[in-house]
Amino acid sequence: MMNADLIKEVDRIVDLYGGRITGSIGMLQDIQSRYSYLPREALIHVAERLDVPLSQVFSLATFYKAFSLRPRGKHLIVVCMGTACHVRGATRLVDEIGRKLDIKPGETTEDNLFTLEAVNCLGACALGPLMVIDGEYYGNMAPKKVESVLGKYSES
């Protein structure tokens, strides 16, 4: 990725929010959805544009859980750990995915294919235990279904 392209893109996003600190969380969200994480240069540039210390932008980027400072894998697996999913066995589900991919929640596989995230509640409790891969919902998940679901993404 050309650095100039990134700066241009960040400029566009910052302008979208009027270039004011009020819109900073929205800006970071847009940058993340564009690059799947918050690149270092992007944070530096946001701080310059907003005329605030980099530490302030960095604190936002680390306080809010939606943000990642590391690149994510090609496929994002989100496992719901909400109460309804918990009492229906979400812990065993996330354990099994972690075992199959040899990563813990928050980590990315070595081949950069999968990132595993455990989140609090996706609000689709009727489907628990629930996992979502790249926006596709897999409801009523059992640990034994993990292998075949992941298989669909491993090939591509």
Partner: peptide, 8 residues
Amino acid sequence: VNRGGGAF
């Protein structure tokens, strides 16, 4: 509309 950042 403001979107949250995943902080409870």
